[in-house]
């Protein structure tokens, strides 16, 4: 008699906690985001480009950048919609093991200061048919008490009211 072989597996969940040091550049950026609800960049003293997120050295010209606030520039959080994409497939968040409901929208934004930025495009009921390249957008922060010093302290970017 040919019995199908039973194959075994061992199931487990890897659960590890971390304390990631954000350092004086990204750490300062995240603190300002959490407490003031603003984005900051550092301007490279060598080649003049904005570094977002701020970092200690420019990877293009290798110039050391100063710590906050010298050469740091506060951004307006406003810009225009460059493009967006609709995410259709379920993905597990490796921090929580939960799956984000889909579909949802990701946007690319051209900030007023010229930089590109990527975040969710909200709110949840935003209609794709209302979206056009070039529409003005603004950053929406989560309520102060919900912020943790993470990029997700930004709730989403939305089309500026009255411009849909």
């Amino acid at each position: 008699m040919d019995i199908e072989k039973e194959l075994l597996c061992q199931r487990r969940t890897l659960k590890i906690r971390f304390r990631w040091s954000a350092g004086p550049y990204l750490g300062r950026f995240l603190l300002e985001l959490k407490e003031e609800g603003r984005l900051w960049v550092v301007r490279c003293p060598g080649c003049g480009r904005f570094l977002l997120p701020p970092r200690i050295v420019c990877a293009q010209c290798y110039t050391r950048t100063p710590e906050f606030p010298e050469h740091w520039v506060r951004l307006s959080g406003k810009g225009t919609l460059v493009d967006w994409e609709r995410v259709h497939y379920p993905q597990m968040d490796p921090e929580t093991g939960t799956v984000r409901p889909e579909p949802y929208l990701h946007g690319t934004f051209r900030l007023e200061e010229g930089l590109l930025f990527v975040h969710y495009l909200g709110p949840e009921d935003v209609q794709e048919s209302d979206l056009r390249v070039g529409l003005p957008v603004e950053m929406v922060m989560k309520p102060l008490e919900e912020r943790e010093g993470k990029m997700t302290d930004i709730h989403y970017f939305r089309i500026v009211e009255g411009r849909r």
């Binding site: 194959l7 075994l8 597996c9 061992q10 199931r11 487990r12 969940t13 890897l14 659960k15 590890i16 906690r17 971390f18 304390r19 990631w20 040091s21 954000a22 350092g23 004086p24 990204l26 750490g27 300062r28 995240l30 603190l31 597990m92 490796p94 921090e95 929580t96 093991g97 943790e148 010093g149 993470k150």
Partner: peptide
Amino acid sequence: PLQVLGRLYVPYANWVG
């Protein structure tokens, strides 16, 4: 400087062969 609390929570199923 800021320390960000993070974690990893990923399920695995390792087959023993």
